[in-house]
Amino acid sequence: MHALYNPEAGSHPLPDDRRVIDAVLAATRRCYEAHPYFRERYGARGEAFANSDGGYLAVLTGDPQSHVDEQVVWLAGVLAARGMPRWLMEAHLDLLCDELCLAVPEESARFHKLLNAARLLRSARQSRISQHDFEALAAAFESSSGAGIGNAGGLLVAAACDEGCGLDQAVSSLIGWLGDPGRFSAQWCSAVAATLAHARSLAAQGPGS
């Protein structure tokens, strides 16, 4: 069976080149290491989706940039409504491009379409909250939340940005899990609420206001 095949993801093309397949798997591993939230919440099932999505994205780079952008924006929106803010897709695309260029350097030009698509998502996020404020809010959460999941502050701020961009389910689909008092400490949940309130306020104003 194909290493990236995921029966739950339906029928879509996957790469044949073993180097590309290994690069996709490596990108998923790095993404999961950088964002422990993925494994904590979605486990092996989520990893299978990350692999099949990564395979599809790698194949997609054979298409014109406009189509890559369209598909990435669509997929990122679908995932954002399921608890994965588009900031995670940004990270996944950066890592995918990195691994693919390392594995198949002669095709770097087409893999860079993924970076361009990531730039689109980044630009949308920064249209709600500046990168400086984004990082400051995320860091403040990390220092005030106590024990929990690493690198989660960025998720909260990113979800507020997505919501500010019109993705109505972005926040509720994240905090239903990440702010669940049955799963996390009172200190953590209180930091989630405070960070989210601050991020929502900034996102509503837009950067530079």
């Binding site: 298409d63 014109p64 406009s66 189509h67 952008d69 369209e70 598909q71």
Partner: peptide, 9 residues
């Protein structure tokens, strides 16, 4: 029916 890729195709 896509905004760009589909129509172009």
């Amino acid at each position: 029916h896509g905004e760009s890729g589909g129509r172009q195709a």
